[in-house]
Design a binder for these strands. Structure first.
Lengths: 156, 156
DNA sequence: ATTGAAATATGTTCGTA
DNA sequence: TACGAACATATTTCAAT
């Protein structure tokens, strides 16, 4: 599976198709076909091409975490004792379901993670009893997201 | 549209269905039905219920930004002069397509944004010519994501 | 790359349990 | 809730352009 690096060519029709499907992955291809005025078979073929190109990374159902009581989102900057602990620390973070993202970053911290918790108490438990317990973690800095105003993908 | 807040009840069958669809939004319901051993009509009905409950927020095609040459992701903490500038600043950030997320946060900054750029040069331009130009923005702190190790949704 | 048509598979509704 | 049957749509392939 070769991942085309930065040179996938898409035209306006590809963009139209993708814009529909980025908004609703289950939108029928034939419906899109009617909207943009080409045949379903053509769209089918274009999607196969886009998938092979590596631009299409898949599709997802999106859940609303608030409906399950998860109302507290936060970013946590993690200081590690030594760079050597990094891969182990990431492995430990993978085991924590509240950790949704994990980035190696430039700047102050070794690692920046995004976490999702039910409430502040849950967040406190996560920080003190889970994340701080990981070997190599010396200190953390937490930024609670009071409100997310923008959440989107790359624009076409 | 009432958004159930933290008390949506789902059982093991709901979870199984959602886990399939969170991984592949276009997986046929009938295929899932065969896997978990109930009828397609039952799944259809459960999905309608889950949608009404507010847990299902929709579905998306996921693109791989690297395929379009977007290889530099970063988090940018933004200091604002006065709290009053916040809504205006967010409006301005919405107009910048490279800004994918925007959070009001506790801690050092007023706002934390996630941005996606083609390269470091593009990031520099974004910071100096777009974000810093927004009225009320006094200073920014940038953390480049060298590598994203985890990227997932809430676990069921 | 695109089309229409054919074959297969799926989505959706409804009566019933 | 769940089922199956019936009907409406959609997906997928293919020969032809």
């Amino acid at each position: 599976m070769k991942a085309n690096k930065g040179n996938v060519q898409i035209d306006g029709i590809d963009k139209k198709i993708l814009r529909y499907l980025m908004e609703d992955a289950r939108k029928p291809i034939l419906e899109i076909a009617r909207h943009i005025g080409i045949s379903g078979a053509a769209i089918h073929q274009r999607l196969r091409k886009l998938e092979k190109s590596g631009l299409l990374a898949g599709s997802k159902f999106v859940l609303n975490p608030k409906a399950l009581g998860y109302t507290t989102m936060a970013y946590v900057g993690i200081f590690l004792d030594k760079a050597m602990s990094n891969p182990q620390a990431v492995k430990a973070l993978e085991q924590i379901p509240e950790v949704l993202e994990c980035h190696y970053t430039t700047g102050n911290w070794s690692i920046l993670v995004k976490v999702l918790c039910k409430d502040n108490e849950h967040l406190m438990f996560l920080l003190n009893k889970k994340i701080q317990q990981i070997e190599g973690v010396s200190r953390t800095e937490t930024f609670i997201s009071l409100d997310q105003q923008i959440d989107r993908q790359i624009a076409l």
